[in-house]
Simulated scan of single mutants.
Amino acid sequence: MALFLNASLSSTSKPHHRLSFSTTSATPLPPFLRTNPKQTLQPSPKLTLSLIESVSSATLVALLSASLVFVHPALAFKGGGPYGQGVTRGQDLSGKDFSGKTLIKQDFKTSILRQANFKGAKLLGASFFDADLTGADFSDADLRSADFSLANVTKVNLSNANLEGALVTGNTSFKGSDITGADFTDVPLREDQREYLCKIADGVNSTTGNATRDTLLCN
């Protein structure tokens, strides 16, 4: 309801102003001012989908980040191989018995393996990079393509072992090792290593039938 002022002057001896108020029906509001109390804002379907996708993406990123930060140390790096799943990299495994085991491509990098027993083990492609193998037993072991780079291979039993294609570059030392019947075919030895091994080489590998001295290219 709107209030309308109606003022008029009368022709009497004492002029006065008379104010009168009357109520009439309100003038309809323009369309842009009208409101519908039952009308509510409805979100756009595209906007809703966009918000859901944004929340889902943020949640996924948060979960992935948390999994990387709080992953258990034992699961962060297994250090094993396709056959041996135990953690063997950077470990003290002195005196451990691996005899006869299949440990293809096993990772023993930087581990301490003093007096460890690998007799008859299948160690194709295994890595002993920078490992301490002092006094370990590799007799009759399959060491084809194994990596002994920078490893300490002193006083190791390599009798009748097959080291075909093994990697022994760097400061690898075989001082005091038993290489009777070992097969060194295609092993890239330094000249000083070759000369030392040729002085102690003897025997024939029972698996390959190759003489140790021949595989070392001794004179």
Rank of each mutant, 00 (worst) to 15 (best):
L64D: 05
S65F: 13
A66T: 13
S67K: 07
V69S: 09
V69A: 04
V71K: 15
H72M: 08
H72L: 09
A76M: 08
F77I: 08
G79K: 11
Y83I: 00
G84A: 08
Q85H: 15
G86F: 06
V87I: 08
R89H: 12
R89C: 14
R89W: 07
G90L: 06
D92N: 15
L93S: 02
L93E: 02
L93F: 05
G95A: 07
K96E: 06
K96C: 12
S99R: 14
G100E: 02
L103K: 13
I104R: 15
Q106S: 13
D107M: 11
I112K: 15
L113P: 14
R114H: 06
A116Y: 06
A116C: 01
F118V: 04
G120R: 10
G120T: 07
G120N: 11
A121W: 07
A121H: 08
L124H: 12
A126Q: 04
S127Q: 10
F129D: 02
D130L: 05
A131R: 02
L133N: 04
L143A: 00
L143Q: 01
S145A: 12
A146E: 06
F148W: 02
N152W: 03
V153M: 07
T154D: 06
K155W: 08
K155S: 15
V156C: 08
N157H: 13
N160F: 12
A161F: 08
N162T: 10
N162E: 15
L163K: 00
L163P: 01
E164D: 14
E164F: 00
G165K: 09
A166D: 07
L167N: 14
V168N: 02
V168G: 03
T172R: 00
S173I: 01
F174A: 03
F174S: 01
I179C: 03
T180C: 05
G181K: 05
F184P: 12
